Amino acid sequence: MDLHYEVHGTGEAIVLIHCGGTDLRNWQFIIPPLSQLYRVIALDARGAGKSPPLIEAANYVEDLTKLLDQLGIDKAVFVGHSIGGQVATDFALSYPQKVSKLVLIAPALTGFEFSSAYQQWTQQVMAAAPNVEKMVMLTLTSPMYRVVMSSPQRDFLVEMMKHNTQRVLEWQTFDMIWPQPPASTRLSQLKTNTLLIIGKEDGEDLWRIAELFQQVPDIQFAYIEGADHLPTLTHPNEISCLITDFLNN
């Protein structure tokens, strides 16, 4: 197991999977309250934080199986944010016996076709490479970050994004392996008890994805007022309470 991770607390295991452009520090305000009640495992996904860069096609779902094996965990709660939610969803579909409950924060979704505006924005960001400063600024000018960029966490987010954008430039491939068929075509098969959290100021594409998750048989939705795509940084108390309440019911 070559991924970097941290373990905090004891009890039922919770695995935290961060969003793109960040690393396990995405959870720095959420780990303390959760670790008072649970065994919290936060990892740096392959290519991010202190984990190795991509030198071959990444398989984030199988990385999670290796993490559980490394820690001797048979079953855990999985909390995934954005692309971390995409990974958690695919993992739950592939290994339902290993997932006790699923929490998705503004998840992405394999097989979902993003809007042309979203695709143009991501292309602009990548076209700015290798200028890390410009790539990060283009990323964070998106409306989906307008709340966090006006918050006290702005400088922290910019620093974290710069670190992980620089890490992306170390990758030798951008290929990723996802289970087939895509999760977008199999949401009705997701039997895990699920909570989906989304900020009311998040982007339109993320809201379209959230609507697709209504196909999940056993799902609850929670909406955070005044939050954008990074409620983990701007509304950590609400996130922590929503997760704790969900796990206790």
Results as ranks from 00 to 15, higher is better:
I31D: 07
G21Q: 01
L195M: 06
G226K: 09
R39H: 01
F112L: 10
Q120V: 01
I243H: 12
S142K: 01
C241W: 15
P217K: 03
N193Q: 15
P53L: 00
P143I: 06
T244I: 05
P143Q: 05
R46W: 06
V148E: 05
G199H: 02
G226H: 04
V61R: 02
Y60H: 00
S35G: 08
G85D: 12
K200W: 01
T173Q: 03
T110D: 08
A88R: 13
T110I: 10
V158D: 13
L37F: 15
V136G: 10
P236C: 11
V99I: 05
T192Q: 14
M126F: 10
D44R: 09
P107Y: 01
L43T: 06
A92W: 08
R186P: 00
S35F: 04
S151D: 13
L138Y: 02
P182N: 14
R46Y: 10
V132N: 10
M161N: 13
I239K: 04
P32L: 08
F91S: 12
A210R: 10
G226N: 11
E133P: 07
L34E: 06
Q220Y: 13
V132T: 07
Y38C: 04
S82Q: 11
D69A: 13
K66C: 08
K101Q: 12
D90H: 04
C241H: 12
T194D: 07
W27I: 03
L37V: 15
C241N: 14
K134R: 11
A127C: 10
A183I: 01
A106V: 05
F29A: 14
F221K: 00
E133W: 08
T173L: 05
V148H: 07
G72A: 09
I30K: 09
E201T: 06
A57K: 08
G49V: 07
A222E: 15
A128C: 09
W27M: 02
A106N: 14
V40L: 05
D245T: 15
S142G: 07
G47F: 07
P143H: 08
W27H: 10
P181N: 04
R167D: 00
A227W: 03
Q124L: 11
I14Y: 01
Y95D: 00
L196Y: 13
L54E: 06
E56N: 11
I177F: 01
S116A: 15
N237I: 13
R167L: 06
N26M: 14
K134D: 10
Q215I: 02
K50N: 15
E12G: 02
V7I: 08
F156A: 12
E6P: 02
A57P: 01
L157Y: 01
L233N: 09
V79E: 00
N26C: 09
E159K: 11
A42K: 07
G199N: 03
I243E: 07
P231C: 04
M161Y: 13
T10G: 03
P179R: 03
L54T: 10
H235R: 05
G72F: 02
T10L: 03
S94Q: 14
H163T: 15
R208S: 13
G21W: 02
E12W: 03
P53S: 09
E113W: 04
H81P: 06
T194R: 03
H229M: 12
T89F: 11
M176T: 03
S82C: 14
V125A: 05
L109R: 08
R39G: 00
